[in-house]
Design a protein around this nucleic acid. Structure first.
Lengths: 220, 220
DNA sequence: TTGCAGTGAGATGTATACAATTGAAAGCTA
DNA sequence: TAGCTTTCAATTGTATACATCTCACTGCAA
């Protein structure tokens, strides 16, 4: 019982959704998944309920679970929420980060400037946001942000490919955020972070808009 | 199967925690609860897992569930998070509320001024916050706030008795928030709402601090 | 007295059988 | 043919038995 089957199934399903192997609308039947994982329905059932609570699954016909469909408006709300919470964390971080953390932030920024490989930049980008998140000194808000990020993953992961123009503008935005944090200007930090997340969303929207209609908005 | 046993058990347990009938640290044993509710362990099990995800239960000895204990610092973080999110919603509402909603807000404010009964005031207070929440036009943030409020309920419900001085200061704060919203000043709205939630927390802290040590901080 | 291994009770994790619900499709009627 | 009813299969909900894990307690040895 050291590692629970329900836990690993839950995570496997999340990974599959992230990787785009399970598209929104795809059915998630207890019996079928149980056979695939080689377990009984019980742990699968628990995993599916957790996916539902994480808003990654929803009920379809006959109360059956399907990978959650999401309308473009919902995605916009989700990104707005993410942006607001991340901005709040950044504003708190501007007031609370230690000297060591401020130095780290600068280091990561420099690494980002020196990097041209999109995959590496993506990893540096994560560290940048991670430092801010922990600098805010509020684990509840941090957990809330993680949760929301999980819900956008299915879309970001399936669609995002770093394009060099976005990479450059991201660098500029990171620099602005860092400057605001270093000067402990909470209001400016909030504004710049909010705009940064909004930019990411615009890029994603563009990509989605260019796709075939049946993929763009699976629900309709 | 119209109403699932698991659902009603989940809600009953929340209500019991809210009402202070189950104090933090109290064990939640599947078998025992199953007998009390007259069902099998299965639906109880599901309800307990959902309580855990809602952070109202945690694991104690032998992986058993107990009503979640919380240190004072955790409570402070929780209230800070609640305040930040409610402030964000208020700031958005200041920019987005319809004329009708603005009028409603004024009406509720007047009702609050005219009211001296703490129970009635508490209901009016809920409506005030409800109007702001829906005025923000973001269901994700609204749901996030609901979730956090649920987690503070156990403490607020067990401890809160309206005291007339708090009632008066609450009125003043509500008036300030309303003015800021009506003049569509998002920044001021955010600041005032944040301070409003902080005041509530201070009052709660005082009440907790006056209690016997073993009740004040159940964990230690 | 201290430390540790064995043991057993208490609790959750999982498998499986059966019950209940839902929705779609077939069939009947006007 | 349109609309209503009935039926039935698909799927989840629940009950129960068994498996597994954890930890407190006991007893022995150093």
């Amino acid at each position: 019982m050291a590692i629970r089957a329900a836990d690993s199934i839950f995570e496997t399903l999340i990974d599959a959704i992230m990787a785009g192997q399970m598209v929104p609308g795809e059915p998630l039947v207890e019996q079928t998944l149980a056979e695939q994982f080689g377990v009984s329905r019980t742990p699968v059932r628990e995993a599916l309920h957790r996916l539902e609570q994480a808003r990654l699954a929803e009920r379809g016909a006959r109360r059956a679970f399907v990978v959650r469909r999401m309308a473009p408006e919902d995605l916009a709300e989700l990104f707005e929420a993410t942006g607001e919470i991340e901005s709040t964390l950044a504003a708190l971080a501007a007031k609370r980060m230690s000297e060591i953390e401020r130095r780290k932030l600068e280091t990561v920024l420099d690494e980002g400037d020196a990097c041209d490989d999109p995959a590496t930049y993506s990893e540096i980008n994560s560290r940048f946001h991670e430092i801010i998140k922990s600098g805010a000194r509020n684990s509840i808000l941090a957990a809330t942000l993680d949760e929301l990020n999980l819900r956008t993953l299915a879309w970001r992961a399936a669609n995002f490919r770093e394009d060099s123009r976005r990479l450059e503008s991201s660098r500029v935005e990171h620099r602005g955020i860092t400057q605001a944090i270093l000067s402990q200007d909470a209001d400016t930090t909030r504004r710049k972070m909010c705009s940064h997340v909004a930019s990411s969303f615009i890029v994603l929207s563009d990509i989605l808009a260019r796709r075939a209609p049946e993929q763009r908005a699976p629900k309709f």
